[in-house]
Amino acid sequence: MDLATLLEEIDLIAGAGDADDALDLVKRLVRTERVTWACEIRRSVTKGQLDAERLVAAGEKIRRESIAHREQARRDLMAATRALLRAGGDNVITRGARELAHFI
């Protein structure tokens, strides 16, 4: 499940869903190995009751962490590309890395 779909589903559940809908979402996330996201959402259900505010907060936390993760991955890729360009000489890999650097 991608991030946009997850956030949309969280909004739907928070607006008109119940605890069973949230727990079903948790199960689907675990099946797709998104355990961290599933744990955040599971915390919004207590004793069979859905806390919609906590569910929305979990969605916001997941969104912020995903953006931070993407930015860190971009920075890591830029650093690796720079290192390759500095030490790699002139070959097909470094020429490809130079082209990739324009899009990072």
Rank of each mutant, 00 (worst) to 15 (best):
L3E: 11
K27S: 14
R28V: 08
R42A: 15
R54C: 04
I10M: 01
D2V: 01
A58R: 06
E53M: 04
M1F: 08
A68Y: 04
R70Q: 14
R75Q: 15
A52S: 15
Q72E: 10
T36K: 05
I104P: 03
K47V: 06
R42E: 15
A52M: 01
I67Q: 12
L84M: 14
L25C: 09
R28A: 10
E71T: 01
M78V: 07
A73N: 06
A52V: 03
R75E: 15
A58K: 07
R70M: 13
T81H: 03
E99G: 02
G59L: 07
V26C: 12
D2E: 13
R82M: 13
T36I: 14
E60G: 09
A73C: 10
R54W: 00
L29A: 11
G89S: 10
D76S: 07
E40M: 05
T46C: 03
L12G: 14
E40D: 15
Q72K: 13
D20L: 12
R98W: 02
E60D: 10
Q49G: 00
A80P: 04
A19M: 02
A101S: 12
E65H: 08
E71Q: 11
D21P: 06
L50V: 04
S66Q: 14
A52T: 08
I67N: 07
A16N: 11
A68G: 00
E9D: 14
R31V: 03
G17Q: 03
V35I: 10
A52H: 02
A97C: 04
D24M: 02
I10K: 00
E99T: 00
V92M: 09
L29P: 07
E8M: 01
L25H: 07
I10L: 01
T46P: 00
R74K: 11
V92G: 13
L55C: 03
L77W: 08
R54H: 02
D20S: 15
M1W: 06
L12P: 06
I62L: 08
L12C: 08
A101V: 01
T94G: 02
A38W: 01
L23M: 14
A52E: 11
L29M: 08
G17Y: 04
V35F: 00
L7T: 07
A14E: 07
I93D: 09
R34C: 10
R75V: 13
A79S: 13
R28C: 07
K61I: 04
G89F: 07
E60A: 10
R28M: 07
A87I: 00
T81I: 09
D20M: 11
L55D: 05
R34W: 09
E33N: 03
I10S: 02
A97K: 03
V26N: 05
A79N: 12
R54F: 00
I104K: 08
